[in-house]
């Protein structure tokens, strides 16, 4: 079980923002072009886990119009690039979120919307919600606030696009692949052996 602390919020935000911590990738010209296209076109799978979900639909309306930035919603994880986890995640929901994330094709990114994904928010002492989403899934962009306004979400998208375009930080899906044991260990703490199939099991299925 993750500890019930209220720390973590400031630290994680600092890690994401600090130039010192961020990884300075040198991009070749081709990689630059590839990253530019990835940043310019984002298909979003919006997973409404918590109350913050109510702030997601407005960004597609005429008032906020996020389609200007090349962001559109899709109905299936197969085509999605971005997973928005909007708020607190109960243990039951988390499993579905992980399944959806693992069905997405790389490159994929996660946006954690609301304080609940950062440190548990007002559910910090709840018995059945996770506290730090980052322990179970690699989060690329946190948007704090309870609940964040649609403007904040748009700014989060703009920052994430900037990160992708200039390779400012290592993408979460690479961390998920490389540190899979860490994430799985945390997931198994909650679900026991009843978790999603491992990478090996997945690939064994693919080669049949």
């Amino acid at each position: 079980m993750p500890e019930n602390t209220q720390e973590g919020f400031i630290d994680q935000q600092k890690v994401l923002d600090n130039e010192e911590y961020s990884i300075k990738n040198t991009q070749s010209i081709i990689q630059k072009a590839v990253d530019w296209f990835r940043a310019r076109s984002m298909f979003v799978l919006a997973y409404g886990t918590g109350c913050g979900a109510i702030e997601m639909p407005p960004i597609f309306t005429s008032r906020y119009d996020i389609e200007r930035l090349g962001v559109v919603g899709v109905a299936t994880p197969r085509q999605a690039d971005i997973l928005i986890v909007s708020g607190y995640c109960s243990y039951k929901t988390l499993k579905r979120v992980i399944r959806s994330y693992e069905q997405m094709n790389e490159p994929k990114y996660v946006i954690g919307l609301g304080s609940c994904t950062i440190n548990g928010g007002m559910y910090w002492d709840s018995y059945n919600t996770i506290k730090k989403l980052d322990e179970y899934l690699p989060v690329d962009m946190y948007i704090n606030g309870c609940m964040p306004r649609p403007e904040a979400l748009i700014e989060g998208f703009v920052k994430l696009q900037d990160n992708i375009r200039n390779a400012k930080s290592e993408a979460g899906y690479i961390q998920y692949r490389e540190n899979n044991a860490f994430y799985r260990a945390n997931q198994e703490k909650i679900f026991g052996k009843n978790t999603t199939p491992t990478f090996e099991e997945n690939f064994a299925g693919m080669n049949q």
């Binding site: 590839v34 296209f37 990835r38 076109s41 690039d81 094709n105 790389e106 490159p107």
Partner: peptide
């Protein structure tokens, strides 16, 4: 935008079979 989308999709990996 549709060009960008299609090029990005060509650059994505495939993981379903």
């Amino acid at each position: 935008q549709s060009f960008f989308d299609s090029i990005k999709l060509f650059l994505k990996e495939n993981s379903t079979n």
